[in-house]
Design a protein around this nucleic acid. Structure first.
Length: 822
RNA sequence: GCGAAAGUGGCGAAAUUGGCAGACGCGCCAGACUUAGGAUCUGGUGGAGCAAUCCUUGGGGGUUCGAGUCCCCCCUUUCGCACCA
């Protein structure tokens, strides 16, 4: 009989929904599990295999915890603001709101077919004023604390799309969408001061259960480096050039100083003779694309400013240059160049004929040997006044202290992390709650006037400015402070990563109107216990969310230091080796598979492919494996319909009273429970499924010779083990054999019977000189001597021992005997 | 260039602390039932060899009674970051 997956799945989905089986009771936080997946961007492409691969297995883990008696909260929502909907509007004229709402409706229908235990009462979407109001509120809190500020800064600009691009939209210096080179452009933009939290963001990584690879990425992204800031006075002026260096030990080897071309000091110090060349160079760098600018293979360029600076430690007069290898955005934007001990400086000095001075001696070389390359490691200090002879590692501290005494600088910790640029010249996002008054300047919108609503009636054109700018009634605003009627709003909207940086709080009570989220519930339900989503968010969303979380904690809204206790990245499902994408036309639509095999089989197949964190290349070749497995189990349970009514499943059985087949299957089911429990906790879906298949094979071998109570014992456990992996099917199997209530309404879990796991005999591997020669079945009680005797009596072993001397016998109880001969 | 992860049958893969390599599944082969099989069931299936046996976890060394697993060197692939001073 064929398993009618369509009817069965529809039946249980209806039952779950009508009976609100997955509504979370927040009043019982004792055994709470907050299980979260990254919410979906509702694009027109709907859900694809990648989404299923994220949500299905994540739901299996949550259901497993539910079956074990935990109070599980599994919400779902929509990351509904964003550029694609706006681009779609430019192309088609369909309003982002309309397309988003339609996509959400479609996606919700698909999601329901997956059969996840989402608490739909907790559903949220970021484009509703009820949600984004609190983005604005958050902005105002940051503003109050000085953590939201405006500054003019270079940003990524795509000439073709006529728009600013977020860092994450720049891939290898090119626009992710149109593949055009990205250039730098200066604009006044809003930033969030994430750098204030750099130290804590770094330290917090040690307290959370996240993949090491992700923590490493965040550490590298934050990029803490210890060193010193040193001031080089400019000759003949009051200006000082402040540099950051991680190698203060090399300060006696400085032979020139480099400023970033955009550095404000350049204008002030450049001499008249050099002005033309400097301006030409600045113009040249301005129009360089990001790829050209940052290419490591690019030959070094630069020009002299004509100015000179003084090395504070030895009074040396050194030229000041500008070069684009100095980055305005890192450190102070100025570099002290030590060509003898830095590869880049060495290359630059050689090209422009600048002197190279050796101040650290490599072991085994002499001071007179010429440098053919920069020596960047530690050695003995030379040409460094009173520090000569010191180990350069020790000199770092000594010289820094010396510089401090001279008043020329101090110890400094620098970060690679930059403040978070949140302005976007886009329509489809959260309006920035700031009014610009001709009299008062920038004025925050008072909290009671929130939300600043996004108007519907705008014109979508790729002009390089937010469509809001040409919406007169939106832009016009009265100054909240002085009442001046000639104020105007900020035309930009916020980066959508702001939306996603706190949404996990909002799920707890998405319609709560008193505060950004329900702080009472957050006390017991935050942090999130399990967060599952893609690696691509390692240094963006996951870093922003940690930052905002810590800020909300500092406001006293939550006690937890970190938002996500445990993080797992699912692997990527590729198609013919390439990531699935609409433009490549290689997206696999799950619908046809779900139609043909059912959601459960599709989910099982995805989970059975391999380790969850590895993903894999899509192929529909193997889906018949899980399908056959489901059909086989279905036919089995149908054969034993209602068996629990006539033969209730015993809590445990006495192995001694069982026949060999019963004993075998009793042992197997208990072994499977043990393995399943261990594997599923760690998202080892593939091996859990393999264990159930193994059980199924054992059942085929033994069931005909088993009593009804053994069968009941096995079948009820089988149904329970199936339920997290294939929820509709598990429920159906349970019902068929006679379970009276939904497994997810009244969860049950079985622990393995230790008596079933006790072995009576061991199949010993017997080796001679480490090579397997025989396997010998022995009672568990057998000791070394008995096993050696049995082994020597076995021709397969003795033939390799005879004629040699036995040196020793290695005996590992329960496992192995290795006879070493000579 | 720097950083991270990974390399096991024809394929997806498995292998508590170092202890019988290849569980489970796909595919393939043989057989059974069939008018039929792209259904189902049973058995087989890393390579070489008639066999005893030998070889086998990217390559090469090492530690060990014993290495897919630990150590060193190298190769390949994927993914991040990329002049970070």
């Amino acid at each position: 009989m064929k398993y009618p997956h369509n009817e069965v799945e529809a039946k249980w989905q209806k039952y779950w929904e009508e009976n609100k089986i997955y509504k979370t009771d927040f009043s019982k936080p004792d055994e709470k599990v907050y299980s979260l997946v990254m919410f979906i961007y509702p694009s027109g492409a709907k859900t694809h295999c990648g989404h299923w691969y994220n949500y299905g297995p994540a739901d299996t883990w949550a259901r497993y915890r539910k079956m074990k008696g935990y109070n599980v909260f599994e919400p779902f929502g929509y990351d509904a603001f964003g550029l694609p909907a706006e681009n779609y509007a430019i192309q088609t004229g369909i309003h982002p709101y309309d397309s988003t709402i339609k996509n959400i409706a479609d996606i919700k229908g698909q999601l329901k077919r997956i059969g996840c235990m989402y608490d739909w009462d907790a559903e949220l979407m970021t484009c509703s004023p009820e949600y984004y109001k609190w983005n604005q509120w958050l902005f105002l809190q940051l503003y109050k604390k000085g953590l939201a500020y405006r500054k003019n800064a270079p940003v990524n600009w795509c000439e073709k799309d006529q728009t600013v691009l977020a860092n994450e939209q720049v891939k290898d210096g090119k626009c992710e969408r149109c593949d055009n080179p990205v250039v730098q452009k200066n604009l006044t933009q809003w930033f969030f001061r994430i750098t204030d939290y750099a130290d804590e963001l770094l330290a917090g990584l040690d307290t959370i259960n996240w993949p090491e690879e992700t923590k490493t990425k965040q550490r590298n992204w934050i990029g803490r480096s210890e060193g010193a800031e040193i001031e080089f006075p400019v000759e003949g002026s009051d200006n000082k050039i402040k540099v950051f260096t991680t190698r203060p030990d090399t300060v006696y080897g400085v032979t020139y100083v480099v400023l970033a071309p955009e550095h404000p000091l350049v204008k002030e110090i450049t001499t008249d003779e050099n002005l033309a060349a400097v301006n030409a160079y600045i113009d040249q760098t301005k129009f360089l694309t990001e790829i050209d600018r940052t290419s490591t293979t690019k030959e070094k360029t630069g020009v002299a400013t004509g100015a000179y600076a003084v090395n504070p430690v030895n009074g040396a007069r050194i030229p000041v240059w500008i070069a684009d290898y100095a980055l305005l955005t890192y450190g102070t934007g100025c570099v002290m160049a030590v060509p003898g001990h830095d590869e880049r400086d060495f290359e630059f000095a050689n090209k422009f004929g600048l002197p190279v001075k050796k101040v650290i001696l490599q072991e085994g070389t002499s001071a007179g040997d010429p440098l053919t390359a920069a020596f960047t490691e530690t050695g003995t200090m030379i040409n460094s006044a009173q520090f000569d002879g010191m180990n350069s590692d020790d000199a770092v501290k000594a010289i820094t202290e010396h510089i401090e005494k001279l008043g020329a600088g101090s110890k400094k910790i620098n970060f690679r992390l930059r403040d978070w640029l949140i302005s976007r010249q886009r329509y489809w996002g959260t309006p920035i709650p700031i009014v610009y008054c001709p009299d008062c300047g920038e004025v925050p919108v008072p909290e009671e006037q929130l939300p600043v609503e996004l108007p519907y009636d705008v014109k979508f054109k790729p002009t390089g400015e937010s469509p809001l700018k040409s919406h007169p009634s939106f832009m016009k605003a009265k100054c909240p402070k002085c009442g001046n009627e000639n104020g105007h709003r900020d035309p930009d909207t916020m980066d959508t990563f702001v939306d996603s940086s706190w949404y996990y709080f909002r799920y707890l009570d998405p319609h709560y109107s008193e505060n950004i989220f329900n702080t009472e519930l957050a006390k017991t339900w935050i942090p999130v216990d399990m967060y599952i989503g893609g690696r691509e968010h390692s240094t963006m969303h996951l870093l922003y969310a940690r930052f905002i979380h810590k800020f909300l904690r500092d406001l006293g809204l939550t006690a937890a230091d970190e938002p996500f206790r445990r993080l797992v990245h699912q692997g990527t499902i590729t198609n013919q080796g390439a990531k699935m994408s609409k433009s490549k036309g290689n997206v696999v639509n799950p619908d046809s598979f779900v139609e043909r095999f059912g959601s459960d089989v599709f989910r099982l197949y995805l989970m059975f492919m391999g380790p969850y964190e590895d993903g894999g290349d899509w192929s529909d070749q193997g889906i018949v494996g899980p399908e056959r497995f489901v059909e086989k189990i279905y036919n089995l349970v149908v054969k034993y319909k209602g068996i629990l009514d006539t033969a209730p499943a015993p809590g445990k059985l006495d192995p001694a009273a069982l026949n060999p087949e019963e004993k075998a299957v009793y042992r197997k089911i208990n072994q499977v429970i043990e393995q399943y429990d261990r594997d599923l906790e760690n998202l080892g879906f593939n091996t859990s499924i393999a264990a159930l298949m193994d059980l199924s094979n054992e059942i085929s071998r033994t069931f005909d010779k088993c009593s009804d109570s053994v069968k009941s014992y096995v079948l009820i456990r089988l149904a329970v083990l199936l339920a997290p992996l294939a929820p509709h099917f598990g429920e159906e199997c349970a019902e068929i054999i006679g379970v009276k209530e939904s497994l997810f309404k009244s969860p049950v879990w079985f622990t393995p019977d230790p008596a079933a796991l006790v072995k009576e005999s061991v199949n010993y591997a017997v080796q001679v000189n480490g090579k397997l020669r025989a396997t010998i079945e022995m009672p568990v009680s057998a000791g070394k001597d008995e096993l050696v005797a049995a082994a020597m009596a076995d021709i397969r072993v003795s033939k390799f021992v005879e004629g040699f001397t036995v040196v020793k016998e290695i005996f590992v109880p329960g496992k192995i005997l290795n006879i070493v001969v000579k």
